[in-house]
Amino acid sequence: MSDYQNFGSKDTRSGFGEALLELGRQYPDVVALCADLTGSLKMDAFAKAFPARFIQVGIAEANMMGIAAGLTIGGKIPFTGTFANFSTARVYDQIRQSIAYSNKNVKICASHAGITLGEDGATHQSLEDIGMMKMLPNMTVINPCDFNQTHAATLAIAKHVGPVYLRFGRPKWPNFTPADQEFIIGKALLLKEGNDVSIFATGHLVWNSLQAAKQLNEQGIHAEVIDIHTIKPLDAERILSSVRKTGCVVSAEEHMRNGGLGDSIAQLIVRECPVPMEMVAINDHFGESGKPEELLKKYKLDIPDIVAAAVNVIERKKKK
């Protein structure tokens, strides 16, 4: 399989913003709500094109979630926009009762997720959001890997009936998935085939995992790289077929180890196919200010960390 090319780095949030505008044109029932972060969420084009369908709620995220839930009664498809921390932790009970338990068709769109938010520091770096959202019954949880995939995912969730958490980020990041690739919720994407180790990654770390696989290849290790853009529902079939082939697993994500993608995969393989596993994730620690690349390095989410995890897990497999 050929190497993936970066078509030109772009922020995933812009993929969301562009798709939201398209949805506005396509679906008269799509409405957008924002809590004073229209520019950051790239929702300004929608707000300008469809002022009657854009609701600026001010810095009041709890109210935003409630209003979004209410808008579904009347057939609207609300997309809420704010940072990941304010989309989840700040409004967890509102989401739990008025959206998830009530099973309302709200799309919770969360930017600036993960440690690559960078300089704003730990208060804004949401590293727990996947865990919180995946614990809620009825909730679909999606973390696309690049601009094109975020664009496609945004279009896809409008057609899906039910609550969705869509997580994306702030920095410009390699854009490498095909622009015309269909986004199927719950269907993991095999990006690179290999027999020695399965690397399951989500979000920005999918690109890092591909780079890690390239380096591993130079050492004669053939890693399989699978993009788990949908953390819930998890593509158990795809994951297990890869694990049965490779016999060991690395997960990679910009999230706490507790509650993240690795946690979901571990739960699956411990039941179905126990094999050695390493998790590239934040280990029970808050973030801090810094450049994204510095933070990835410090918190061991960088390409060499994925390479090391793969080498390590293959060693463990051999010892078994």
Binding site: G66, I67, G70, G74
Partner: peptide, 15 residues
Amino acid sequence: QGLSVSIGAALAKKL
């Protein structure tokens, strides 16, 4: 939570 929900439903009626 109900007042926020009611506002949303009222806005949907307007739309």
